[in-house]
Amino acid sequence: MEEYQPQLFQQWLQKKSAALSEQTFRKSNARGYLGFLFILPVLMVVGLFFITPLIMTAWMSFYKWPLFGKAKFIGLQNYLNIIDDGIFWHALKFTFVYAIIITPLIFILSMIMASLVKDNKKPGVAFFRSVYFLPTVIGFGAASIMWRWLLDPRYGLLNHLGVSLGLFDSPVIYQDSFNASFFVVIAMVLWKTAGFNMILLLVGLQGIDKDIYHAAQVDGATGWRRLRYITLPLMRRTFMLTLILSVSGSLLAFDQFYIITNGGPMDKTITSVFHIYNNSFMYGRMGYGAALSIVQLFILMVISILQIWFLRDKQGRA
């Protein structure tokens, strides 16, 4: 009978462990390569339609780049010109005012709509969900054109009905008043976007276990306490997503103001993106428009990071 040799056993065990580790590593690599192949089309699309244009925009921002003609390198001059661009700062201020007003209105209306249709057992819930969400299917451009037609002083249906019903003596020309123009845009955006945010909030509401509400009700928690201590904390991440999308969309507003108000009256409803469009394509200053775009991107990134930071939980998690 052979004598037990610990050294030989240890060598065999090390070789076996190395073989198993190598086999596991190969399998992990194979799964990793397979996963990479699955996301490769997405990476290609992102690289082609986001990363590449972003790099080109950053590169153009250092040039005097006319719409027609030869580009000339001017370094940081485009960014220095932004400091003295009073129209841009006025447009940026108006954009922030618009975002501050429209964001809570969208959130409140969407939350009310989601609360009304969250119970699948109520009759007509599926119908009203479809009705609430339907405007989301329409593009911003098409929705803006439709609202401009409805409010047209000569052919608009709403103006015609208002005069016919005696609500006002003559057709309302909303383009002549800043308040009227701003109200029309606010109403259109609420009608257009509330349904999408309703879906996000509805998913968050339905994800909360009903037993939690029943237990709180048994303990004597009122509706306000259930909202404060159950609904709001458990929907924090849903609120974060909804808030970031709403604020980002508001700061990038363009179609509704370009089509409905055309920046009027007296250029009071020009947004920052509208100003970028004017410089790039109306005035032919592509390099300056690129610099404005980079500044706009930086502002969006800072605001998004601040929103995530403020809405993090006590452990610092998003």
Results as ranks from 00 to 15, higher is better:
185 V>R: 00
166 G>M: 10
164 S>C: 03
129 R>T: 07
185 V>P: 02
207 G>W: 11
205 L>Q: 07
212 I>P: 04
192 K>L: 06
141 G>L: 14
150 L>V: 06
114 A>K: 03
204 G>L: 10
139 G>A: 10
192 K>C: 11
101 I>S: 13
204 G>E: 09
156 G>F: 11
129 R>L: 09
194 A>K: 02
163 V>E: 09
188 M>D: 01
207 G>L: 06
179 N>V: 12
169 D>M: 04
103 T>V: 09
195 G>F: 01
133 F>C: 01
152 D>E: 09
119 D>K: 10
160 H>D: 13
129 R>K: 15
190 L>V: 12
152 D>M: 03
191 W>P: 03
207 G>D: 12
150 L>A: 14
105 L>K: 02
172 V>D: 02
107 F>V: 07
120 N>P: 07
195 G>K: 05
149 W>A: 14
202 L>D: 07
181 S>V: 01
121 K>C: 06
113 M>K: 03
113 M>W: 03
195 G>Y: 03
192 K>V: 09
202 L>Y: 04
130 S>R: 11
126 A>T: 14
172 V>T: 08
148 R>C: 02
157 L>F: 15
162 G>P: 08
176 D>V: 00
166 G>K: 08
176 D>C: 00
115 S>K: 13
108 I>K: 07
185 V>H: 00
138 I>E: 04
122 K>P: 09
196 F>Y: 15
143 A>V: 11
211 D>L: 13
200 L>D: 05
203 V>I: 15
158 L>W: 12
118 K>H: 12
132 Y>R: 05
155 Y>L: 14
164 S>T: 14
206 Q>S: 11
146 M>P: 03
209 D>T: 11
165 L>V: 05
144 S>F: 05
157 L>T: 13
106 I>L: 15
168 F>V: 02
192 K>N: 10
166 G>N: 09
209 D>S: 15
135 P>Y: 02
177 S>F: 00
153 P>G: 07
127 F>V: 14
126 A>E: 15
121 K>E: 14
110 S>M: 10
144 S>T: 10
156 G>D: 13
162 G>D: 03
191 W>L: 06
180 A>W: 02
136 T>W: 13
116 L>D: 04
153 P>D: 08
131 V>Y: 05
168 F>A: 04
112 I>P: 07
109 L>N: 05
116 L>T: 11
181 S>H: 00
137 V>C: 12
168 F>C: 04
